[in-house]
Design a protein around this nucleic acid. Structure first.
Length: 313
DNA sequence: TTAATTTGACCCCC
DNA sequence: GGGGGTCAAATTAA
C-alpha cells in the first residue's frame, strides 16, 4: 500500500531513531538499569511507528479509493466470477502485501498468541506440504493488514516455516496472554499495537542497516513442549500435531480459533499455558518482568528468539 | 446463530 | 501459461 508521504517521512525518522536506540542499547548492556531505560525508549519508538503506520494505512486507503474506483471501472471488463468483489480489490491487496515487512521464522508451534483467520490453502510446487494463508482476524473491523503464511518444512515435518507479512495495527484483546505476564505496562503497549520486540542480544542489530528485509529465525520450543506433555497429559494440542493431517494442523493451531481464544481469556486451556509463555515473549518482550527473567537466565527461550520488530523501510 | 474453516475458482505477476 | 495469492460460497464447529 502506498504510504502517504508525510507519514512515510515520520515512520522513516522513527525507525532511524529506533535503530540508533538499539545500537545504544548494545553499548549499555552492562548496566541493567540503563538497559531498562533503553527498552522503554524502544517501546516508545515501536508504539509511535505503529501509530504512524496505522494512520498512514488509513490515509493511503482514503487517498487511493477514488483512484481505485477509476481503475476498476475502466479495466474490469470481462470474465469475472459472479460476485461483485473482484479484481480491483485484489490488485490493491497484492500491492500492499508486497510492500509490507516480511519476517520468516521456523517454529515448532503455530501459536503466536495473535488472532489469525485462515483464508486459504494451496499446494505449492516442489513442496511436500501445502501452504496455509492467514490474515488478522481484525482485518476488516480494524483494518489490520497483518498476514501470516504457514508451511511445513519438507526436511523436518515438525517444523513450520511461518512468514509474517506486515505488522499488526489492530488492538487485539489480549485474551491469549498468560495472566502472570499481563502487567499494566504491557497492556498499554499491546493496546497501542505493540507486538514484536526482542531482548535477545543479537536481535537489536538486525534492523540497523536494513531497508527491506527477510529474516529467518528459529524459536526452539521442542524440549519445553515435551516437558509440558509430561506434566499436562494427553490433552496437548501441540503434541497432537504429528498425528493429524495437514489441514487440521494448520487450522486447529491457529490462535484465531474462537475456542482457544475464549479459553485463554478465563483459564488456560489444558496444555497451553507454556505456549502462552512463548506467546507472551513475542508480544510483550519489552515487559520488565520478562527482561528480569532474561537477565537472570530464567527464560531460556529468549536465547533463541530473534524477532525483528520492524524491518521494513 | 454466529464465526471459523475448507476448497474450488479467479486473478495477478513473473 | 503457470504458479502463487486471494476470494467467497459451502460446510463445519461452537
Amino acid at each position: 500500500m502506498p504510504m502517504a508521504p508525510p507519514f512515510a517521512q515520520v515512520v522513516d525518522d522513527l525507525i532511524k531513531g529506533q535503530q540508533f536506540a538499539t545500537q545504544l542499547q548494545d553499548l549499555l548492556r552492562a548496566s541493567p538499569k540503563a538497559g531498562l531505560i533503553m527498552d522503554q525508549i524502544l517501546h516508545t519508538f515501536s508504539r509511535a511507528i505503529h501509530a504512524a503506520e496505522a494512520a498512514a494505512a488509513t490515509s493511503a486507503a482514503e487517498w487511493s479509493s477514488d483512484v481505485q474506483s477509476e481503475v476498476t471501472d475502466a479495466g474490469n471488463g470481462g470474465g469475472k466470477r459472479k460476485s461483485a468483489a473482484g479484481g480491483g480489490d485484489r490488485r490493491a491487496c497484492r500491492r500492499k502485501t508486497q510492500q509490507s515487512s516480511v519476517v520468516t521464522k521456523n517454529l515448532k508451534s503455530l501459536d503466536d498468541g495473535l488472532a489469525w483467520r485462515k483464508y486459504g490453502q494451496k499446494e505449492i510446487q516442489n513442496c511436500k506440504h501445502p501452504k496455509a494463508y492467514f490474515r488478522c482476524t481484525h482485518k476488516f473491523d480494524q483494518q489490520c493488514a497483518a498476514q501470516r503464511q504457514v508451511q511445513r518444512c519438507d526436511e523436518d515435518s515438525e517444523t513450520y516455516r511461518v512468514t509474517y507479512i506486515g505488522v499488526h495495527t489492530c488492538q487485539d484483546p489480549p485474551a491469549a496472554v498468560t495472566p502472570h505476564h499481563q502487567t499494566g505496562s504491557s497492556d498499554v503497549l499491546h493496546a497501542a499495537g505493540f507486538h514484536y520486540i526482542s531482548f535477545a542480544p543479537n536481535a537489536v542489530a538486525a534492523p540497523a542497516t536494513t531497508t527491506s528485509t527477510t529474516t529467518t529465525t528459529t524459536v526452539n520450543t521442542t524440549n519445553h513442549l515435551t516437558g509440558v506433555g509430561a506434566a499436562a497429559g494427553s490433552g496437548l494440542q501441540s503434541l497432537k500435531l504429528g498425528s493429524r493431517d495437514q489441514e487440521e494442523v494448520l487450522s486447529s493451531n491457529t490462535p484465531g480459533n474462537s475456542a482457544l481464544r475464549s479459553t485463554a481469556g478465563a483459564a488456560p486451556a489444558p496444555g497451553w499455558p507454556d505456549q502462552g509463555d512463548v506467546t507472551s515473549t513475542l508480544q510483550y518482550g519489552g515487559d520488565v518482568d520478562l527482561e528480569d527473567q532474561f537477565l537472570h537466565g530464567d527464560f531460556p527461550y529468549l536465547d533463541d528468539i530473534v524477532v525483528p520488530y520492524y524491518l521494513d523501510h
